[in-house]
Design a protein around this nucleic acid. Structure first.
Lengths: 234, 234
DNA sequence: CCTTGCTCTTATTTCGAATATATGATCATG
DNA sequence: CATGATCATATATTCGAAATAAGAGCAAGG
């Protein structure tokens, strides 16, 4: 195992045009929290930070705008989108709408390969938690990739490009909030169990149970990040 | 009626930055069919067409990309998104998901102002049809504004910014297909009646009936544009 | 005759400079 | 002392030209 270092970090950012690269880099930094919510995204700063010209940067920012990670005001530049309880509620609302319907369609149309994908994704997630023990928050980025993979697998057979794209976008937007609660998961025990149950309902083709559990799962993030009794802290 | 010409055409396009203006202009042209599906959007052509520089144009194109009206391939420029039966089905799928949930929430949370908005929007649409008679396809753009207004009014009280935005985007994307079937509506008679029924169900707070009718309404576009027995014609 | 590799053309993409706009400070004024 | 106008500075935005990549046409070789 000498040359085991492969080009892993080149995958997301080093493709195509500088505009895409810029969009990817900025998205990564926002999701990872390196660009805090509400931060001003001054062009000059960004040019220095990423060593990319103003034109492709602006283009990347424009693309991110429509995805809810960035807000841009007329002649006053761009900012990282704020986080707030209302926004998380809105994301959850939209996610619920998309996933409730997508999982219904997936259950209706899913074939054997789809089922296998779910089992596989769940297995990977479980193993990752077992392997890293209670410190699986450390590799939050890697863990979240698997978590996203599982939820994507559930919906994979829904047959709608737009729904899958929307799910992906919304998942990423919610990631900024989930990051906060990563440390709050005591053990991976209950986490895996609830996902196992979700998978069971889906594989049993029980639409109603799956929808119900999915909705509850989505809403649980809100209470984790903003406990019901506490005040707001945007 | 001397100075009855107000600045109406300035509303959508003449605000803020050139990038926004470019995005708006291109969007209008795509929706109106002046830029045909699949057209190459060469930068040089667009610069001449709109008398706007390459930088803000490209930025506008980037913004439209995430909204499904434009596809951009790496180093190979931009094109107007193709139309196809699959794409219309996908739009409808996504619209169903969003609207089914949004109307549920709206019925649950809607207040008196919301109800009034629905009645008002329906009234405007009916009057417009009565006034223009069977030629209401002529003012398709104006009519469609009212039609969109009605459907937006139904969901207005859902309480989710993202859902309303998604509805607006999807409605616009579907407009390219609806434009084709505009001439196919024999009389405004049945059209208004079905919308009246939809409004009745919603105002009666009958979630199930409203959802059912809404879904059917959305799906009806597919059969109009691509009749079930005919082959595809993208 | 088809394939392959090269050059030349065309178009996209990017940069650096110029322009237009907002922001903040300074100063005069009520 | 508060308030509003004016100017200076910083910033975002846009332009025109240069760098870069894709595509077309053509020649040489299998």
């Amino acid at each position: 195992m000498p040359a085991s270092e492969r080009t892993l970090e080149r995958l997301p950012a080093e493709a195509g045009t500088l505009s895409e690269r810029a969009a990817n880099l900025i998205e990564q930094d926002i999701l990872a929290g390196r660009l805090a919510p509400g931060s001003r995204l001054g062009i000059v700063d960004l040019v220095q930070r990423y060593d990319i010209g103003a034109t492709p940067l602006r283009e990347g920012l424009s693309r991110l705008m429509s995805r809810g990670l960035i807000v841009g005001i007329g002649q006053r530049g761009f900012r990282v989108a704020e986080v707030s309880r209302e926004d998380l509620a809105d994301i959850t609302c939209m996610r619920t709408a998309v996933e409730i319907e997508a999982v219904r369609l997936a259950i209706r149309h899913g074939d054997l390969a789809w089922e296998a994908g779910i089992v596989s994704a769940l297995h990977q997630m479980r193993r990752h938690i077992e392997r890293t023990g209670n410190e699986f928050r450390e590799g939050a980025a890697e863990f979240d990739r698997l978590h996203k993979g599982f939820h994507t697998a559930l919906l994979a057979a829904c047959g709608s490009r737009r729904m899958l794209a929307a799910h992906s976008d919304l998942y990423d937007q919610a990631y900024r909030y989930r990051r906060v609660m990563m440390g709050a998961i005591d053990s991976g025990e209950g986490f895996i169990r609830s996902h196992q149950m979700l998978a069971d309902h889906v594989l049993a083709r029980d639409v109603t149970a799956a929808q119900k559990m999915l909705a509850a799962h989505l809403h649980s993030t809100i209470d984790f990040v903003y406990p019901p009794e506490s005040g707001e802290q945007p």
